[in-house]
Structures are given as structure tokens and as C-alpha cells.
Write a protein that binds this DNA or RNA. Sequence first.
DNA 1: ATTTGTGCAAATCGTTTGCATCTGA
DNA 2: TCAGATGCAAACGATTTGCACAAAT
Lengths: 129, 129
Amino acid sequence: MKLQDAGLRCTRQRIELGRLLFAKGDRHFTADLLHEEAKLNQIPVSLATIYNTLQLFMTVGLVRRLATGGQKTWFDTNVSEHHHLVLEDESRIIDIPAGYLTVHQLPPIPEDTEIDRIDVVVQLKRRQS
Amino acid sequence: MKLQDAGLRCTRQRIELGRLLFAKGDRHFTADLLHEEAKLNQIPVSLATIYNTLQLFMTVGLVRRLATGGQKTWFDTNVSEHHHLVLEDESRIIDIPAGYLTVHQLPPIPEDTEIDRIDVVVQLKRRQS
DNA sequence: ATTTGTGCAAATCGTTTGCATCTGA
DNA sequence: TCAGATGCAAACGATTTGCACAAAT
């Protein structure tokens, strides 16, 4: 299973959170949303552990953090290269299907650096009717 | 001048902050950096006013907020369409020159929304020698 | 004179941390 | 057994807000 593949200890909390996150396809979530969902599913886990676990999952590549421009940190279980639509109020994040938004002609970057990743964020606003 | 063009009251703080921000070309900054700079320049202004003023400048389009993926909010005095390189530790934000990274083939978006803007963030990390 | 802005301190929000206790290997 | 994980509460950093005072029109 994913946890031991990643060299992580299989604790109750991690197993249950992993189940929530990876059971039903790709998802976008914040620490708080995941905490709420855990509560709904009767999974005993503190918010602190949620944060620790997400940090951990991130360092082993199970989830990635998104650049959304908002105050809350959003995560994505889809760690492959793809981009996002972000609704105005940050209530929702939507994947941009592959094939759109291919990025060409990378810019020059400073001497001692390399590209870690590229986030394209399309900010949407509600259309004033 | 820019302030009255935008319909804002010309207060000491706003004038001085505007001078700092727009005097020497495009800049990237956080509320805190601007506060520091104001102090260095003997401009009496509280951090709260910095925040209020930036909010205001943003709503009238004098500055824009950047999606960097970090915890601090970065602003940009260049409000035209362009994109950014972000250093790993967020210590620095660099403009991507026009002509790079043109975005093609916009994805379908939900019914009642329109595109507000597009942020492309190229996250850089230090190259391990 | 009236409206709006400012500064301070306290409040808020998301996230992290210290530490005592528990648990998986 | 015992290194590592958890939970709680306190700490933290960025940002916002309430309110008394000051300044702009």
C-alpha cells in the first residue's frame, strides 16, 4: 500500500486519511476540509495531525500543494502536471484538462536555480449578469 | 495624479506610499516590506494603514495581488498581463519578460463565470550542485 | 462641519510547536 | 521496547477590525 511504499509508518490516522483522500479519484482540499470530512466519517484525528500528515504526504509526493493566491493552503491528490481554475471566493478548485494551456518558451532563469514546477492559475469571477 | 484619478482622498500616507511604489518602475513587495521601506524613508505610517491602503490600491487597479503559493501576500505595481518566477523560499519574485509563456487554448469554464486573470507561477528551487 | 483616514491594540484565522501520552514495528 | 506519532493547548505570523483621534474636502 501507498504508505509503506513511501516508507511511512502505518498508523490508524494515516491509513484512514489516505483512504479518504485516495479512494475516490483526484481531489482538491484544504486541511480544514479534510478535518471536517474525517469527523463526518468518525475518524478520530486532530487538526494538528492533519497538518503534520499533509506535510508528510507532500514530502513523499503523495499530494501536492497548489498556488492559488488565497490565504488557505490547497492540496491536490493529483500530483501529475496539470493546472487549475480557481473560483473568485476560493470555494472551489477545478482541474484544467490535459491538452489545454500548454506552456511554451520557458524564460531564462537565474544561474544557480532550476524549475521546480509550474502552476498556472486561471482566476475566475462570477459574471455580472 | 494617480490618487485623485482613482477617486481616492489624497492623504499624506497615501501620497507617500504611492511615491515609494511608483517612483522607480515596477516592483514586487509585501505589506511588511513596504512598511519597512516606509520606516527607512521616515514616512510615518502604521502597518494597519499599509494593509488598508494596499487593499484600496488593489480595488482601484493601482496594484495587483500575485498568486505565489506562499503564506505572505505579494503585490505587483505592474498590473499588465505578465507572469512570474518565484524563488523557493519566496525571498524574491521576478517578472517573466513578455513574449515568454504565452498561454494558448483556454479551457472551458463554468457557465456563470468569466476569466478574471491568469497567473503563471514558475517555482524555482536552488540547484543542488 | 462632515466625512473619511489613521494608529493602536486587540481580535481573528490558518498553521506550527512543545510536551505528555500513546502506539506500531 | 522505544522511536516515532498523536492530541491538546499554547504559540505564532500575517492580516483584519473596533474605536478614539486626526485630517481632508
